[in-house]
């Protein structure tokens, strides 16, 4: 079987998900034995910008018309499109408080010139094109990327936890920051996959992986309210990283 043709792209973001791929130091050379990376501008200067791709992986949010054009072009040449990271899946910090008028902020910052910069309302990938798979995380866990490649090579959809960070946190037998210390920890409403990295270090979860879809939000909210955090404050926290998933 010939190796699948893969493209790895970044729209507007911090390049952290592409860097997470390059951080698979021990596996990179094995990886190129299994997949044919045809276009990866961050790592290679001979990318083929036209060829059809079996898999495109795209990180970042859409915040310019140029991003939107590039994303549509990538979609058109790719059989499977994977959104990589919280910005691509949920809008991320670029889309934070996205009801604020970007044009106005640009003008405030750059003066008159701000009117000339390419800008559009910040969006997640699925708001522009069809997305086949999502790998969330800010940044993604590199193990999730490797597992996704393995699944896709086998023709399987990549699967990720659908339970909240709390589940992983309890498995690690941490003291609960929310219940025992009254800290605003977003663990009950944030999707797992990080092995409760922050609460393990006594740091409250900031919700960087986006909302959990399988949770019982009513019981989580009741817990927050019991601890004295009002609904608006919780939503505001979640909207920092996942503005597209959490209505204002």
């Amino acid at each position: 079987m010939s190796k699948p043709k893969v493209g790895i792209f970044g729209l507007t973001g911090c390049a952290g998900d592409q860097l997470a791929i390059l951080n698979c130091e021990d596996r990179l050379l094995d990886l190129v034995a299994l997949i044919d990376i045809r276009d990866f501008p961050m790592a290679s200067s001979d990318g083929n910008q036209e060829c059809a791709l079996d898999i495109a992986m795209v990180e970042g949010a859409v915040v310019t018309m140029r991003d939107a054009r590039r994303l549509r072009a990538i979609r058109q040449r790719s059989a499977t499109l994977v959104a990589l990271g919280t910005c691509a899946v949920w809008g991320g910090v670029a889309a934070m408080d996205r009801d604020l008028d970007r044009a106005k902020l640009l003008e405030e910052v750059y003066g008159e010139l701000g009117k000339e910069y390419d800008s559009c309302p910040a969006r997640a990938l699925h708001e522009i094109v069809k997305v086949d798979h999502n790998i969330t995380g800010c940044p993604i866990e590199k193990e999730h990327f490797l597992a996704a490649v393995a699944s896709l090579l086998n023709g399987d959809p990549p699967l990720y936890p659908a339970y909240p960070v709390c589940t992983e946190c309890r498995m690690r037998e941490n003291n609960c920051l929310l219940i025992e210390r009254g800290e605003l920890c977003c663990g009950p409403i944030t999707v797992a996959g990080c092995d409760a990295r922050c609460p393990q270090l006594r740091i409250p979860c900031v919700g960087c992986r986006g909302p959990v879809t399988d949770a019982n939000p009513a019981s989580a909210l009741a817990l927050f309210e019991e601890k004295g955090f009002d609904r608006e404050r919780i939503w505001a926290r979640l909207r920092t990283f996942a503005p597209v998933g959490v209505a204002s």
Binding site: L11, T12, V63, T64, R66, D67, V93, A94, M96, D97, L100, R102, L105, L106, E108, V109, Y117, D118, S119, A122, T240
Partner: peptide, 15 residues
């Protein structure tokens, strides 16, 4: 520079 402006500095106000 074609990088889109994420406007993080004005967006962090109020945090």
């Amino acid at each position: 520079v074609f990088e889109g402006a994420r406007l993080l500095e004005p967006l962090v106000r109020g945090k």
